[in-house]
Simulated assay, not measured.
Amino acid sequence: MGHRPTIRDLARAAGVGTATADRALHGRGNVSDRMRQRIAEAAERIGYRLPSDSAAPSAPLRRINLGFVLHKPSQSFYQRFATEIEAACAAHPAANITPHIEYSASQSPDDFCAAITRAAQNAHAVAATAINHPSLSRLMTELRAQGTPVYSLLNDFGGRAGAGYFGLDNMKVGRIAGWMMALRLQRPGRVGIFVGGTRWHGHSLRETGFRNSLHEYAPQIAIADTVVNLETRQVTYEATLDLLTRHNDLAGLYVAGGGMEGAIAALREVRPPNKVALIVNELTPESQNALADRYALMCVATPLKELCAALVDRMAQAPELEVSSPTLFEPSLLLPESF
C-alpha cells in the first residue's frame, strides 16, 4: 500500500510552507489566486485529496505568453531588467504568464525588428527597448493590426504606432542632471555630454533637458560638443581621455545613456576622486562603486521592479486594454552617501 500524501508532501511539491498550503486550502489569510492554483496543481500531481471546502480555484488561471526584447545581454543593468521581468510575470496574481525574452544582436534597426518579430510569435503582447526608426514604426503598426500590441521601454520608439511607453520622463531626467551639475560647479568651467546615438530620442531629450538646465542655473559653464558613444565602454573611455586632454577646464561629464563604465575607468586612470563631476544613469555595480569612491556625483536610476510590475499587469490585459498615454515613473536619485 502506497504512502498517502500529507499536507507536508503537498507543501513540498508546491514549493511553499505548510502553513501557506493550509491557508490556501481552507481560505484563510491572504493567499493569491495564482498561489492557490499552484497548490491545487501540486495536489493533483501527487494525488493529495483536497478537502471539500477547499478554497483553491477549480478553474486554471488564464495562460498568457508575453514577449520582451532587450539588448546588451552582457551588461548587468539588462541582466537585472530580465530578472525583474521574470519575477513580475511569476508574481502576477491573475494569470499564468510565460515570458519569452529576446535580445537584439546589435542596435541596428534590422536587428531590433528581427528580435521583436521573434518575440511576437504566439505572444499576447510585446515590450521592447529599441531605437527610433521608420522600420520599427512600420513593424509595430503591422503587429498591432494583427492583434499584438508593442510597448516601448525606456525610450519611446513607438509613438503613435506603439501601444504605450513605460519609463522615465527623459527631459526631466536631463534637467535633474543639469541642476545637480550646476549646484556642484560654482565656478566657470566646461562639461561634456555623451549620448548613445541620434536614433535614441530619449537620449536627445536628456541632452536637451541637461543643456537647458545648465543655461538656466549656471550660464558660466561652457558645454562641449556632444559625443556619440554608441553606448559602448571603449568609445566612452577613449572619448573621455580625449576630452580631458583637449580641455584643461573640463569639470564635469554627463553620460545620458550607456557606456558609463568607460568614463569611470578613464577618470580613475588620470584624475583623483571629486576632480571631475560625473553623472550617470542606472544603478550597476560599476556606478555604485564609482559613487562610493567619489568618482561619480550622482546616478539617476529607473525603478525597475515597479516598472516591470506595472508593465506586466498592463500587458496581461492587452489587447483588451491599450495605452494611449505614457506610463511614467519617478527616477531614483542616488548619491555617494546613499550607500
Rank of each mutant, 00 (worst) to 15 (best):
residue 248 N to R: 13
residue 289 N to W: 01
residue 262 G to W: 06
residue 292 A to H: 10
residue 257 G to T: 05
residue 256 A to I: 05
residue 285 P to Y: 08
residue 290 A to S: 03
residue 263 A to S: 11
residue 255 V to C: 07
residue 262 G to C: 10
residue 257 G to E: 03
residue 266 A to R: 14
residue 256 A to H: 05
residue 276 V to C: 07
residue 246 R to F: 09
residue 260 M to C: 14
residue 260 M to P: 02
residue 280 V to N: 04
residue 266 A to M: 14
residue 288 Q to F: 06
residue 267 L to T: 06
residue 282 E to W: 04
residue 244 L to M: 13
residue 293 D to P: 04
residue 259 G to W: 09
residue 245 T to I: 13
residue 293 D to W: 01
residue 291 L to P: 04
residue 273 P to E: 11
residue 291 L to A: 03
residue 281 N to V: 15
residue 281 N to D: 08
residue 265 A to H: 14
residue 285 P to N: 08
residue 270 V to F: 10
residue 257 G to F: 06
residue 273 P to I: 10
residue 255 V to N: 02
residue 277 A to R: 07
residue 260 M to Y: 07
residue 288 Q to A: 15
residue 287 S to G: 03
residue 271 R to W: 10
residue 246 R to G: 02
residue 273 P to A: 10
residue 271 R to S: 12
residue 290 A to T: 00
residue 279 I to R: 01
residue 288 Q to L: 14
residue 277 A to Q: 07
residue 284 T to P: 00
residue 277 A to K: 02
residue 275 K to Y: 13
residue 257 G to Y: 05
residue 255 V to Q: 03
residue 262 G to I: 08
residue 284 T to S: 11
residue 248 N to Q: 15
residue 286 E to R: 00
residue 275 K to E: 15
residue 285 P to I: 10
residue 281 N to E: 11
residue 252 G to W: 04
residue 260 M to T: 08
residue 249 D to V: 09
residue 264 I to N: 02
residue 264 I to H: 00
residue 270 V to K: 10
residue 269 E to R: 13
residue 293 D to S: 11
residue 243 L to Q: 08
residue 273 P to C: 11
residue 244 L to W: 15
residue 283 L to M: 10
residue 246 R to A: 13
residue 251 A to T: 11
residue 246 R to L: 15
residue 269 E to M: 12
residue 264 I to F: 02
residue 253 L to K: 12
residue 292 A to M: 09
residue 266 A to P: 04
residue 291 L to T: 00
residue 244 L to N: 11
residue 259 G to Q: 07
residue 279 I to D: 00
residue 252 G to Q: 09
residue 276 V to G: 07
residue 260 M to D: 03
residue 256 A to Y: 11
residue 251 A to P: 13
residue 273 P to L: 04
residue 293 D to F: 03
residue 282 E to F: 10
residue 250 L to M: 09
residue 285 P to C: 08
residue 254 Y to F: 15
residue 273 P to K: 12
residue 249 D to M: 07
residue 266 A to V: 11
residue 284 T to C: 02
residue 272 P to W: 01
residue 281 N to A: 13
residue 269 E to V: 05
residue 273 P to F: 06
residue 277 A to F: 12
residue 243 L to M: 15
residue 260 M to L: 13
residue 243 L to Y: 09
residue 244 L to D: 12
residue 243 L to I: 00
residue 254 Y to E: 05
residue 271 R to F: 11
residue 286 E to V: 08
residue 257 G to W: 00
residue 247 H to N: 14
residue 267 L to E: 05
residue 268 R to T: 04
residue 248 N to L: 12
residue 275 K to M: 14
residue 253 L to C: 10
residue 280 V to E: 01
residue 282 E to V: 09
residue 253 L to G: 05
residue 287 S to M: 00
residue 264 I to G: 01
residue 274 N to C: 09
residue 267 L to N: 02
residue 264 I to Y: 06
residue 251 A to F: 09
residue 259 G to C: 14
residue 274 N to W: 06
residue 254 Y to H: 08
residue 245 T to D: 15
residue 258 G to N: 14
residue 286 E to W: 00
residue 257 G to V: 08
residue 259 G to A: 12
residue 265 A to I: 09
